[in-house]
Each structure stands twice: as C-alpha cells, then as structure tokens.
Amino acid sequence: MRRDTAVLLLLAVGIAVLPFALPNRYFYDVAILAGINAIVCVGLNLLIGYTGQISLGHAGFFGLGAYASAILTGYGCPAPAAMAAGAVIVGALAALVGRPILRLKGHYLAMATLGMGIIISIVITTEDRVTGGPDGMAVAPFGLLGWSVQGEEAWYWVIGASLVATVALALNLIASPVGRALRAIHGSETAAEVMGVDVARYKRMVFVLSAVLAALAGSLAAHYSGFVSPAKAGFMHSIELVTMVVFGGMASTLGAVVGAVLLTVLPQLLTVLKDYELLMFGALLMGTMILMPRGLLPTLETLWRRARI
C-alpha cells in the first residue's frame, strides 16, 4: 500500500512540474493526448493486464463516449450531462455485450471484441445524418453555466487531474479483495470459481469499468479537440491502445501510463524522420517487445531490484 501511495505521488508531482518543461502549445497538446490515452490504458490494463481478458474493441467505447458528447451537446445538452449520458450508455452496452462474449476465451474473445468495435465504428461512419459520417463532426467546448474549459493550459490540468483520479481508482481497486479476485481469474479461472469468485460477474464488472473509463476519456478528447472523427472509434485505435498497455507492461498501472505516454510521444518525435516514421516506429515496437517481453516497466523494475542487491 505504501508503494501505491508513492506511485500516485510520483505521478501527481510529475504532472505538476511538467509544464515547466513545456515551452509551447504544441507540447501541451502532446501531453494532453498522452494523458487521455493513459486514462484509457489504465482502465484497459485492469481488463487485459490484471484479469487476463483481451479486448480489441475498446476504441469503440472511446468513440461512443466522444460521439455521445458531440451529438448531445449539439442538441443543447450541458456538457457534463452529455458526458455522463455517454458513460451510462457505454456502461449499459458493455454490460449487455459482455454477458455473452466474456464467456469466450483467448483468441475467440479477441475476435468478438474486435467485431464489436468494428461494428460500432461502421455504424458511426455510416449513420452520417447523426454523426457527420466519415468527415466527423464539430464538438462544443466543455462547459457549464457560461464557464468553460478553454485553451491547452486549462485542459492540461483537467486531463492531469482526471488521470491522477483514474490511477488512484485503479490502484485502490487492485489492492482490494476485488483486485485479488480479478488477478485470480487471470491465474486460474477454475480455481477462482471454486474459491467462490463469481468469475462471470467479475469479468463483466471490469469490462464495464474499463469501457466507462474509455467513454469518459473519449468525451474529454472530443471536447478538447472540438472535433470527432470515426477513426477514433476504429480498429487501428483499438490496436494502438492494446499496444500501449503491453508495451508499458501488463499488470502494472504505472506501466500502462508509461506505455501510453511513450507511444503517444514517440510518433511525434519520429515525424522528423518523415518517410521513415512508420518503419522506425515498427522497428522500435518490435525491438522493445523482443528485448523486454514483459513490457517496459516490469523489466526495468526487475533490473532496478537486481542492481540494488
């Protein structure tokens, strides 16, 4: 528990001092995008890293959250209410879909979640009267009663605080009997069930929780950029999210944050390589996973512990 407090403190301090190193709006923008991805990844890591259940469709939930905010605020709904509505809709959908598909295992679960995500993104792309179709749609600023979040700096603090809250939530959850039950499901579903863990219920619960976090992050992202497009709900975005989780290190909340930040920043750095960008990104991803198969943070932790002995 003391370690969790240290992690949280480290993160909060890091977020608080980072602006001193952010010279202009572009850097703030990258930091905000990294923070939004990190929120999704911390939730997704509860599902993938701790419970051992893959999802290749979480961008669908992210997209639904974003579009719920875009569409509802378009009809004059206050932004926080639209955000809450998006979260409730996505939570209900995840509970509904999760019941049958979480019975599937391994690659079959990957297939079903992938299918679900793709269906969501196709619906968003096709129903253009509501969603603006492939061109996307504009989103009103996030605000209430005449006050609103404007500019990169304000958004930086909103996203930073949201991330700290999400990480606190995840750390608390994992350090509890609920977290232990989730990890037990990862270790052996049979033994967990025999020890009285209602496996189906817990899987559904963590699936819904991670989906709701993705939806909330989607809402924030939509309001921040003032624009949503179907790509945010698409297959490639789902893959990016899973990659961030695995890259940072599965079953490590801080790892999920680190993975999200690095894989958001890296493509920005690689843009100087122009045509070589994709090539380098692919090579770095492969190389890191080959050298550090457990992901960045768990590997570094092991090295650190060995160095101290």
Binding site: N172, R180, R183, A184, G187, A191, V194, V197, L209
Partner: peptide, 27 residues
C-alpha cells in the same frame, strides 16, 4: 490450479474471498 501470478499468501487470501468485502464501491 495455483494462481502463479500471485504470492503464496495472496493465493490463500483468495480462498477467503467470500469472507472479504469484495464490493466494487468499497474497493
């Protein structure tokens, strides 16, 4: 059917799952 992703003590604690407060809210 050991939970190899956990410590020994945590394995035993899962056995006590039904006696613990395993509600999401309090977690």
């Amino acid at each position: 059917q050991i939970f190899f992703n956990m410590t020994a003590v945590e394995n035993v604690m899962v056995g006590a799952h039904l006696r613990s407060d395993a509600r999401l809210w309090s977690a």
